[in-house]
Amino acid sequence: MLFKIYRYDPDKDAKPYMKEYDVELSSSDRMLLDALIRIKEMDDSLSIRRSCREGVCGSDAMNINGKNGLACVTSLATLKSPVELRPLPGMPVIRDLIVDMSQFFKQYHSVTPYLVNEQPAPDTERLQSPKERAQLDGLYECILCACCSTACPSFWWNPDKFVGPAGLLQAYRFLADTRDQSSSQRLDNLEDPYRLFRCHSIMNCVDVCPKGLNPTKAIGKIKDMLVKRMV
């Protein structure tokens, strides 16, 4: 199978280039990550991030034939050859397929990504009905892989000002949690022409999310909450 991979090592390359690899795959090589590991056996200078190899750690996000995804859960059988691999779009490249995620995490950190409840903690758990808990489904499963935010044109233009789909999904995860008591501060923190309202419902985020989550829907719910608060 033929691969064209974005290569750049600032230590020795003046500029990035695409390198071709023709890889003989074995029958046990099922996923794109398996092929990348074969390539690394041939050429140890290819740098990628990877860890769990089952789609839960979020390490190996990359741009695969033009679409963001996780290498470890992208079946080779679904890919058109030559497979073109590039780093996640819009982020500074550290090396090869490894990007600098600082801006992405900065936005995640900006949404107060933790439960706020200043009441004295009870001796037992804080109660929450199954229905209330179900409000968190489709939100808490985010693996922070950045496929969504780096597929979002609004995030490309304003990565410093627009929180982006991943951060906003997590913002809503806490707004939706009946145990959290800081909804009004959370909404204040997002009521801004850029932080929230740069989302124009392009829905690239939904299209690429490897966990099948829907940030656009969550963003819509935050907007609803802001509208409700005004009336």
Binding site: Y114, L115, E125, L127, S129, P130, D177
Partner: peptide, 9 residues
């Protein structure tokens, strides 16, 4: 749970 863990209920 108090830290915010989304346990099933």
């Amino acid at each position: 749970e108090h830290f915010g863990m989304p346990f099933d209920r």
